[in-house]
């Protein structure tokens, strides 16, 4: 039955640090690499070398620009670029599970991972419709729904060295922006990280109660005056052009027509 468990023994999930992510897409590639060869049907590509390539991915990295508002009389701070990896959030109240007509989608009691039993999937797509995060993609070659498995075939895999028993995306991330652990245990490293950094839910108004958390970017440093002891020595040498350039500047100012730029 696709009823959700009332509670799960653990809440395994990811914590993604938006402050640290550099947007390299390495997690996307390692995810595709691991998951196309392991659990379930391969992640197919359509027209991969042609004019209109597309394919199935379980993890994708968006990039957003955030423009802070001007604060008081200060001018608006510079816009900030935030790279934003997005995959299944293994929601506690996962709508994708309950809408499934065949029972192919389920949430595991032991660790809270949301999985698809591909042998039961009829490829109706309703679970993808019900997911606000775009975490599920129907594989066009296999005709079944694909989603993040939290690398269920790595994290309990005794054939792998211990350091590899974490999701492929976490293992790969060169910036250390991805963390894996039990978010149901308040004493776990990931839970402490979430508490310390005010980890947040995506679209909380949807009521999905995501297990995965996002750590917001830290505020930009405010540069105080003269923070650099060398600054006085590095003052601009020539603010007003002199000599020939100064004469040329004044001569050009006198010519009719518009002058663009600053006062110089």
């Amino acid at each position: 039955m696709t009823e959700l468990p009332n509670s799960t023994e653990r809440k395994m999930g990811l914590v993604i640090d938006l402050d640290t992510c550099v947007g390299c897409h390495a997690c996307v590639i390692s995810c595709k690499g691991w998951n196309t060869e392991n659990y379930g049907a391969p992640l197919s590509d359509q027209d991969p070398y042609g004019a209109d390539p597309s394919g199935t991915f379980l993890n994708r990295v968006h990039s957003f620009e955030v423009q802070p508002k001007p604060c008081g009389s200060e001018p608006a701070p510079a816009a900030q670029l935030i790279h934003f990896p997005k995959s299944c959030l293994h929601c506690e109240d996962a709508p994708c599970v309950t809408v499934c007509p065949t029972g192919a989608s389920y949430k595991r009691v032991e660790d809270g991972i949301v999985l698809v039993n591909e042998d039961n999937c009829i490829g109706c797509g309703l679970c993808a419709w019900s997911c606000p995060y775009g975490a599920r993609e129907l594989d066009l070659a296999a005709g079944v729904m694909k989603k993040c498995t939290l690398c269920v075939d790595r994290i309990y895999n005794d054939n792998l060295p211990e350091e590899d028993r974490i999701p492929s995306c976490v293992r790969t991330c060169p910036a250390g922006a991805r963390h894996f652990g039990d978010l149901g245990d308040p004493n776990s490293d990931v839970s402490k990280l979430v508490a310390e950094r005010d980890g947040m839910d995506l679209m909380p108004e949807m009521g999905t109660k995501p297990v995965n958390k996002y750590l917001p970017p830290r505020p930009k440093d405010q540069m105080e005056d003269q923070i650099d002891i060398l600054a006085p020595l590095l003052a601009p040498v020539a603010e007003e052009p002199g000599g020939f350039m100064g004469w040329l500047d004044k001569a050009l100012d006198k010519l009719p027509g518009q002058t663009s730029g600053g006062s110089n």
């Binding site: 957003f64 620009e65 802070p68 935030i82 839910d201 995506l202 679209m203």
Partner: peptide, 13 residues
């Protein structure tokens, strides 16, 4: 709300 970045400023893709 989708990105959780709304309290920092206007979000643009």
């Amino acid at each position: 709300t989708a990105t959780g970045l709304g309290d920092r400023g206007a979000v643009r893709a």
